[in-house]
Amino acid sequence: MPYALALALTLLVEVPVYTAALTRAGGPRPTRAAGAAVLVNLLTHPLLWWSLRPYAAGPAAAYWTAFALGEAGVCLVEGALLAPLTGLPARTALPWAASATANAASVLAGFLLGGFLLGG
């Protein structure tokens, strides 16, 4: 999948998930939540994407290990950044839960779309 498509898919999936999760729980206004979602993704997505490239040509086990560790790192970074960007209390579980949910949804969407595009 080309990078631009992967980034677009990530934003298309994650921004609504973040916005819904953060605002329904009495958090920030939808525009602030959506803006924070875009910002954290613009920070983490290219870092993960380009850091996985060296593993793509190697053994599958190395790639999937790097992928899993990278996604876990993305969840941690995005969760940590969401509280100050949205004005949520730093010790609330909401940013972390929203990050895990949004990233799981986009990984699933990527797998589904990638399988569709590859014919499998």
Rank of each mutant, 00 (worst) to 15 (best):
L22H: 10
A6N: 05
L118F: 12
G73P: 03
T65K: 08
L42A: 07
A56P: 00
M1W: 07
A57E: 13
L42Y: 07
Y63D: 02
L22M: 11
A80I: 09
H45Y: 15
L43W: 13
L81Y: 06
A21N: 02
V77A: 14
T44F: 02
V15W: 03
W64C: 07
L7A: 09
A72L: 15
P30F: 04
L47Q: 06
A109P: 08
P46W: 08
L81C: 09
P84T: 06
G26E: 13
A36T: 05
G27I: 08
N103E: 08
V17Q: 09
E14Q: 15
R29A: 15
G26H: 11
A109H: 03
A83D: 01
L9C: 07
V15Q: 01
L112P: 05
E78W: 01
Y55V: 14
L113S: 10
G26F: 04
R32H: 09
F67W: 15
L5F: 13
V17R: 05
L69N: 08
F67D: 06
A104F: 08
S99K: 03
L76G: 11
L12P: 04
Y55F: 15
A56D: 13
V74Y: 01
V17F: 13
L12R: 04
L12H: 09
G70W: 05
L118A: 15
T92K: 03
P28A: 14
G73I: 02
G35K: 11
Y18K: 07
V107E: 01
P59Y: 10
G35C: 13
L11R: 08
G79S: 06
T44M: 14
G114F: 10
